[in-house]
């Protein structure tokens, strides 16, 4: 059992929805009570469809957005007993800067993450200058670029001169500049081709082995998740519906949404059982008005149409409205949690 690096406790983030007069009428529950433990030196994966709160979770983890309630607890490995508190939301701005040194971020779109008017050497050295580590900065930048498979000859170039995979390498180099303990990867390969994706995934695995990094890996591509992650949380509408070790989750999914998600991933390897999810994603808006607050659990018009379309074809299905019921997280197997009855 490895050491826990970050503990997320009952984290909630609600975004208010205002009407014309500026009074709150509803809340978008982007995170609705998330509990997670991120182990040191492992890769923790977060999967879910768009709008389920993956990115908000990442942003609260970095304290780029303030959570509504709940807390993020940091272990001694991160705080070094220097911080006034081990709760992320209680850190002072000076301590927050120190905390952010230890956490690197790689975003989805590398072109959007790189300033098109800056040279590569400036981009990669920027975190070092900001944190005042200007000694031997050139050597450090070259070392970082070598680490991600680029070289000294790339120092004086602009981002547009690189291919998509190379740009992502530059972003990774910049994220590693301050020797972080954790790397948060928000869909690092979804903009790339499979062959380039394979290169980046190999690079990430090498770096993890070399520097004993902890990864928080956010993706919607299950084959990538299965390859990269040790432990995995499936999110649906701001909640973690299932959490388990990757092998366990892929071989024995418990929550209906997880099962449908696994079977929806196109693959050519094995003929799996096919479960379709019918209907559209429900809105995450919760009205403050009690009468409108509850999500309907009866079948909607669209779902009825879709059921009619696939009936008699021998395809198993679940409807989205049946997922709206709120169940509590249960331990279904050792260290395997799911929201099931």
């Amino acid at each position: 059992m490895s050491e826990v690096l970050i503990t997320i406790e009952n984290l909630r983030k609600y975004f208010p929805v205002k009407n014309v007069w500026g009074t709150d009428v509803a809340l978008v529950k982007a995170l609705d009570g998330v509990d997670l433990k991120i182990d040191s030196g492992k890769t923790f994966g977060i999967v879910g469809e768009s709008g389920c709160g993956k990115t908000t979770l990442m942003r609260t983890l970095l304290r780029l957005v303030e959570p509504t309630s709940g807390s993020v607890l940091l272990s001694d490995e991160i705080t070094n007993n220097n911080f006034s508190s081990n709760k992320l939301e209680e850190l002072t701005s000076e301590e927050l800067r120190n905390f952010r040194k230890q956490i690197g971020v790689v975003f989805q779109d590398p072109m959007g993450a790189l300033n098109p008017r800056m040279l590569i050497k400036d981009i990669v050295s920027e975190p070092l200058t900001i944190h005042g580590k200007t000694e031997g900065i050139r050597e450090k930048v070259v070392w970082l670029l070598n680490n991600v498979g680029l070289g000294e000859e790339h120092l004086y170039r602009y981002p547009h001169e690189f291919s998509g995979g190379q740009r992502q390498r530059i972003v990774i180099a910049r994220a590693l500049a301050l020797d972080p303990k954790i790397l948060v990867l928000d869909e690092p390969t979804s903009a790339l081709d499979v062959s380039v994706q394979a290169q980046i995934l190999n690079l990430l695995n090498d770096l993890q082995k070399k520097y004993d990094l902890t990864y928080v890996f956010i993706s919607h591509d299950l084959s990538v998740i299965e390859y990269m992650c040790d432990r995995l949380a499936v999110m649906y509408l701001g909640r973690v519906v299932e959490e388990a070790d990757t092998e366990d989750l892929f071989s024995n999914p418990q929550h209906p949404y997880t099962r449908a998600l696994l079977s929806a991933t196109p693959s050519f390897e094995k003929q799996k059982e096919k479960i379709m999810i019918l209907g559209d994603v429900p809105s995450p808006i919760t009205y403050l008005d009690e009468s409108k607050a509850k999500l309907a659990t009866e079948i909607t018009e669209q779902e009825r149409l879709e059921i009619k379309a696939i009936e008699g074809k021998g395809i198993e299905y679940i409807v989205r409205s049946s997922l709206n019921e709120h169940l509590s997280l249960k331990e279904v197997a050792p260290s395997h949690y799911a929201r099931v009855k």
Binding site: S163, V194, S195, Q197, A198, Q199, L201, N202, N205, S223, V224, E226, Y227, M228, E247, F250, F268, E269
Partner: peptide, 22 residues
């Protein structure tokens, strides 16, 4: 062959990267 092998699978073996150039 290379394209099929580049797709990540469950196992932890290293992915083969097709040598395709630009």
């Amino acid at each position: 062959k290379a394209l099929i092998e580049a797709i990540p699978k469950g196992g932890k073996e290293r992915l083969k990267v097709p040598d395709i150039g630009e």
